[in-house]
Nucleic acid binder design. Sequence first.
DNA 1: TCAAATGGTTCACCTGGAGAATTATTCTGT
DNA 2: ACAGAATAATTCTCCAGGTGAACCATTTGA
Lengths: 158, 158
Amino acid sequence: MNPATQRQSKRTAFLLSQLGAVASSRFAERTRGIGLTPGDAGVIRLLGRAPGLSQRSVAEKLGIVPSRVVPLIDSLEGRGLVDRTRSSTDRRNYELHLTDAGQQVLHELRGIAEQHEAELLAPLTGDQAAQLGVLLAQLADAHGLDRDLHRGSVSQSG
Amino acid sequence: MNPATQRQSKRTAFLLSQLGAVASSRFAERTRGIGLTPGDAGVIRLLGRAPGLSQRSVAEKLGIVPSRVVPLIDSLEGRGLVDRTRSSTDRRNYELHLTDAGQQVLHELRGIAEQHEAELLAPLTGDQAAQLGVLLAQLADAHGLDRDLHRGSVSQSG
DNA sequence: TCAAATGGTTCACCTGGAGAATTATTCTGT
DNA sequence: ACAGAATAATTCTCCAGGTGAACCATTTGA
C-alpha cells in the first residue's frame, strides 16, 4: 500500500461520517420545506408502512424513548396528519393512523426522497451509484442496520 | 432498471445517513474512552495540524460559532491539553497550542481513528474498501466537502 | 484621535433527547 | 375473584449541543 492509498483509506470512515451528516441535513432541509422535522418524517413514513401501531411500537421501531413519541404524535395530530384512537381491545394503547392529509404528506415525502437521492448521487455515474449502493448495503447489513427503520433513523432522516 | 435495483437505488441516500450516524457514534464512543467528546477530538486534531491558531480560526475551520469555542478550549485547557497564550503581536487573540499531554492525546487519537476505520470497513474486502473510499471521496469533493476539516465535522467526529 | 473592526466572552435561549415517577388499564397465579 | 405484576401513555425534570445578541478590550485606519 503506497502512502497515498494508505492516507486515503485512513479517511474513509470520516468521509462516511461527513457525507452522512450532509445527507441528513439536506434531507432535513427538504422536509422543513413542507413543515416537517426529520422526526415527523420518520413517524409518517413508518405509519405509512405499518398503520395501526401503538406509540410504544413506534418508539421501538424508531429507536427512541416512548416519552419522546408523545409530543411527536401530539404535534402531528394537532396538524391533522395523524389520527390517535384508543384501541377497542386494549384501552391502554392507541392505534395510530395517517389521516388523508397524512397520506398526502407521505406522498410528498416520497417525492422529496427521490429528489434527495438524485441530488446526492448526481456526481456519480449510474454504475458508480449502483456500486455504492451495493457497498453501503453490505456495510449496513454487516453492522446490523436496516431491517426496518431503526435506531437513530429519526434524527437521521428516515 | 428493474424494480429491485430501483428500490435499492432509492435507499442509498438513507443508507449513507444511517451509516454516517453509526460511524460518528462509534467514533464518539471510542473517544469517550479517553475522556474526549467529539468536539474535543476535533479541536485536538486541528491544533495538531495547525498549531498557533486563534479561537476565531478554530471556529471557522470547524464550522462552529466562536462562542462555542470558548467552553471547548476552557475545558481542554483545564485538563492541561491545550495551552492558551495571548499573542504578543496582537493582544486581542490567543495562540492555541497542544501541550505535551495534548500531543500524547493526539497520538492516542490517531490510534483510535485507525481502529475505528478498521472496524467499520471490516465487512468489506480490501478491494471493496478501496472502491468505497474512491466513491466517497468523489462525492465529498463534488459536494464541496473535505478541504480541511469543516462544517459539521466537530459534531461528526473529526 | 476617534470610529470601525476584530477577538474573546457572557448570557439568554432553543432543540432533541433521556429517565424517573404517575395514572390507567390489562394480565396472571392462586 | 382478586391482589399484584406488567404494560401504555403521559408528565416532569434534567442535560448536551448549539445559536445569536450584547459587551469589553484591543487594534486599525481615516
